[in-house]
Nucleic acid binder design. Structure first.
Lengths: 220, 220
DNA sequence: CCATGATATGACCAGGTGGTCACATGGAAG
DNA sequence: CTTCCATGTGACCACCTGGTCATATCATGG
């Protein structure tokens, strides 16, 4: 077990103030990454004193880890909802809907996705491996369960190795979502400026290619 | 036109010393990113005085941009070689060989790939859009020319949209290479610890899936 | 009205940063 | 041996960082 990074004082705060601080910290950490994030900027943006921050949290790491906890909660709830809502469909329909749900999530919570990217790419983020393992469990479990379904129902060819299929899905999904979030990633599709209809069409097309790659010949 | 970031003094240096400095700077910038990189660390690692660094380069940006120039040169030469060597083969063979050449490049020049990742993910890198555009041109042109070949020779189905195909290739390639370079990315395939034979097998399998996705039914 | 304990505050600290500059060194030309 | 200029040097500067702490403020219960 480990000490909580957040002090009770913080949880006693009026919700409006609490959320102002969370929003300011999230913006700072997501925009600049762990090390580059400035606590002075956080206190300035949330209108509290430096000392107060240290009455709410143990230290910089504490603030960061608390943000991560909050983020994980949001992601978990979202993922469960999507899985539930597509329960009945075939694998490729589920994948397509999941992809669009991912786009929706990023549009709704761009900072949370930004925080994830930071952890992914800032090698000096504290407890990075541990945090990534947590995120990874979500994605890998999700794809693994879909691929399992696909194989057992014959929607995916028997010869396909599950690991390679998961790798392909993970690569395509992550890149698509990063393309939506960051123009620099999206060399060709213009996802960042596209409207919902266009993104949906591109997603469908992409899942179509993946489907041909994975499904038995007679079904495509 | 713009002022060169490197001063003539640097180019007059004995090559051994020049390369020591380049190596030290590359290590620092690739490991920590632009803002987090410490020039004090660079001078310590290369055994020169702080002041000397400022006789060789205009400023921190200058050092960074010079490193990028050096890196682009290496990448350009490598890419030309691969394109040349696979000239005769069909699209999917060319892709497979290109993927393995990419792996080889990363194993040979891990810091250069690290520098690329930094530019990609550190939003505060100076002139980031411009630098990424340069890298992007390489990859997009490369894939575009292969896809064009594939479509014109009938190795890729006529119905496939070139942009979507390029997106798929870009996603799969980049993720595969990042998986080789950084364990955190590679959820399922274990590329980071795999030996050359294993990586080749995984690459072949992955290109196989992509091929099924892109090629006309009768050829797979 | 006071006392008490929780909460709020910002000047302050040590340590690191990118960048500067007055001076030291070296080697070649006269 | 002297002059001269390119090159080398590290103490120093202003600025910013995460973190501390003595003190002020506030709300509540007696």
């Amino acid at each position: 077990m480990e000490a909580s990074p957040v002090r009770p004082t913080f949880l006693n705060l009026p919700p409006e103030k609490r959320e102002r601080i969370i929003a300011a910290a999230l913006a700072e950490f997501a925009d600049k990454g762990y090390e580059q994030a400035s606590l002075n900027a956080v206190v300035a943006a949330s209108g509290i004193a430096k000392g107060s921050l240290y009455q709410y949290f143990t230290d910089k790491q504490g603030i960061f880890l608390y943000l991560f906890e909050v983020a994980v909660g949001v992601v978990r709830r979202t993922l469960l909802t999507v899985k539930e809502e597509t329960r009945e469909a075939d694998v490729f329909t589920r994948l397509e809907k999941s992809l669009l749900a991912g786009v929706d999530f990023i549009r709704r919570h761009p900072r949370l996705f930004g925080l994830y990217l930071r952890i992914l790419y800032d090698q000096r983020t504290p407890r990075r491996q541990e945090l990534l393992a947590a995120v990874r469990r979500f994605a890998a479990d999700y794809f693994a369960s879909l691929v399992r379904q696909g194989l057992s129902r014959g929607e995916i060819r028997a010869g396909v190795s599950p690991e390679t299929a998961i790798f392909l899905l993970d690569a395509v999904f992550d890149r698509f979502l990063q393309g939506v979030a960051m123009p620099a990633f999206d060399v060709t599709l213009g996802l960042n400026q596209a409207d919902a209809r266009e993104v949906a069409a591109r997603g469908r097309e992409l899942i179509g290619l993946v489907r041909r790659g994975l499904a038995p010949p007679e079904t495509v």
